[in-house]
Design a protein around this nucleic acid. Sequence first.
DNA 1: TGGGGTGTTAACAATTTGGTAATGATGAAT
DNA 2: ATTCATCATTACCAAATTGTTAACACCCCA
Lengths: 226, 226
Amino acid sequence: MVSAGKKILIADDEPDILEIISYNLQLHGYEVITARDGDQAILKAKQNQPDLIILDIMMPKKNGIEVCKILRAQPEFNETIIVFLTALNDELSHVKGLEYGADDFISKPISPKIMVSKVNSFFRRINKPETTNAIELGDIRIVPDEYMVYYKDQPINLAKKEFELLNYLASKPGRVFLRNEILSRIWGSEVIVGDRTIDVHIRKIRQKLGIDCITTVKGVGYKFEI
Amino acid sequence: MVSAGKKILIADDEPDILEIISYNLQLHGYEVITARDGDQAILKAKQNQPDLIILDIMMPKKNGIEVCKILRAQPEFNETIIVFLTALNDELSHVKGLEYGADDFISKPISPKIMVSKVNSFFRRINKPETTNAIELGDIRIVPDEYMVYYKDQPINLAKKEFELLNYLASKPGRVFLRNEILSRIWGSEVIVGDRTIDVHIRKIRQKLGIDCITTVKGVGYKFEI
DNA sequence: TGGGGTGTTAACAATTTGGTAATGATGAAT
DNA sequence: ATTCATCATTACCAAATTGTTAACACCCCA
């Protein structure tokens, strides 16, 4: 059972390892981004907003721990799972890593098969709250597992961004999400998009759903409510 | 969408770059202060208390890293975002910059458009969602998360400024807020508005709420009370 | 290789808002 | 009672913000 469409960033300086692991993860439906050093890892993390980041400890430019420290300092990576790749008995790294907010460790060497199963289990861990429980509000049911929305049990096909936007707003019904919040969560903090982009997506959602469940709060943002 | 009225200090010794960047940032509603060397940067930073400081690394008098080091040593610049402009592959500066508390790096050359987007994202980062708790007084419930006010559970739609004003007054029920206090808190200290502006907003709140919960204290200000 | 779906932008329309001016009340001090 | 400063009210306008539409580039897949 694969968590479809999840993004994984892997940073390691050994091309072979990168190749093998990313190939296997892709086979299992994950979207994989790779980086060869610490700086690249930070850059690509910001650009792509992955759900899981796997960092080799020993890397050129910045080591995994530094990368973790820098990423964790930014709110947008609060929720991201960060995992270290370590040599088998490197206790010191374990300790340091935990201090800076690592979620777990994977010991090298590791077989691709075990790697995939570990990755699956990471997502199982965080998916419990949202994936198991689809959001259901009034006549609207949002099922992240299926990337699908139902209105009165009628399936409604939203595009990826539309779905993510709706799902995000619906995660806290009634709460206003600032345009800034929406941008950094859905688009990532370093993406260049124009002012009207959010509006257009909101419009498409409203149009496809046919009912008015997204309220504009002028000068502030949008909120989902029945 | 722009963090309006934010002050940005840019320090670079090349007038052309200064010109282009500051023009574009101003277009997007930012207030821009410029400096041509390190000493000037420090001086203007102290004078203007900008929200974001962009420092070229290579500058006359003091280089960007020295400036950063000096500013960071002062408590008033603890919260300020400091960012370096660096040549593309200047790894050494990256490392040193981090040591002295830089928040990020921008590689030169950079297009104005990307610069603006980066600046936007810096402010997005610090514009944390305010998870303030709801205020409940008598039959009135003020929920900042929702930008919404309820009277006897009936939702009342206030405009942004109206809501902020009511929320501010209600933050300390019974206390009188001077007109000056209200002005600097809700309108900001730099904005100049006429005498009657507050009154009009108070009036609109009273009208929409339908009950008299804002008391005028003549010659002093307003207070919220049931 | 071309067609459908997707994401983004530009351009313009529609709407809301924030602010002001003008004028009318109020009330305390003279 | 008159005066003066202060606040209330109203209507109006400009600016800010969002809605809408169409067009475009892109990617994936048949």
